[in-house]
């Protein structure tokens, strides 16, 4: 159950509420808007395609995007109606998930940062360094305070995967500045 919705679990709405009852979890409307926007983008993008049809391809490349984009807009509207009538999507539970309290945006932000840093550094510095950093920073963001251990595991994982996959199996992983040393 989402953060806002926990205060109003399903079934607490008075049964006398009209079809346009209380909206629970307003953020859902934002998602509807995003879906509709995505639909519009798909349709607009398709409309600028050249209408190339031939006997070989009577449909052309535009039909599918028109269909998908249009359906996205329709579903967005239906979804919004559902939300306006008090519908709430159940946030996903899991064995390691506790939905009682607010989302921890700080952790998510730090993880996103560590992830983006890896994307920036992977080619110049190589996978071994950027991957170690990614593991270390992610573990830190998730609350690990044994810094040396975190870094050691990160380096071990990065080195291990580099040798096993890049050198052993020929997977594309860059050596970066450690080229020639590894």
């Amino acid at each position: 159950m989402s953060t806002e919705a926990t205060t109003a679990p399903e079934g607490t709405t008075p049964s006398g509420a009209g079809p346009l009852g209380r909206v629970r979890d307003r953020a859902q409307l934002g998602l509807c808007a995003a879906l509709a926007l995505a639909g519009v983008v798909v349709v607009v993008d398709a409309s600028r395609l050249g209408e190339v049809t031939s006997s070989n391809d009577p449909v052309g490349p535009r039909a599918m995007p028109f269909l998908v984009g249009g359906a996205l807009v329709v579903v967005a509207v239906l979804y919004a109606l559902d939300v306006l009538r008090g519908g709430v999507g159940e946030a996903e539970a899991g064995e390691d998930v506790e939905l009682g309290h607010r989302a921890d945006w700080r952790t998510v932000g730090l993880l996103g940062g560590a992830f983006a840093l890896n994307a920036v550094l992977i080619e110049p510095l190589g996978w071994v360094i950027s991957g170690s950093l990614l593991f270390f920073l992610s573990a830190f963001a998730l609350g690990n305070r044994h810094h040396v251990r975190g870094l050691a595991i990160g380096i071990a994982l990065a080195l291990g995967t580099f040798y096993a996959f890049a050198i052993g199996l020929g997977v594309n992983l860059p050596a970066g500045i450690l080229q020639g040393i590894l």
Binding site: A114, N118, A119, I122, W127, G131, L134, F135, L173, P174
Partner: peptide
């Protein structure tokens, strides 16, 4: 848990990069 989920992100970025060798994919 920190090691577990950091490990997931680690392997996820390794795999996604390995598909096309493009940082863009990350």
């Amino acid at each position: 848990r920190p090691y577990l989920y950091a490990g997931i992100l680690f392997f996820a970025s390794m795999g996604a990069y390995a598909v096309n060798a493009q940082p863009f994919d990350l």
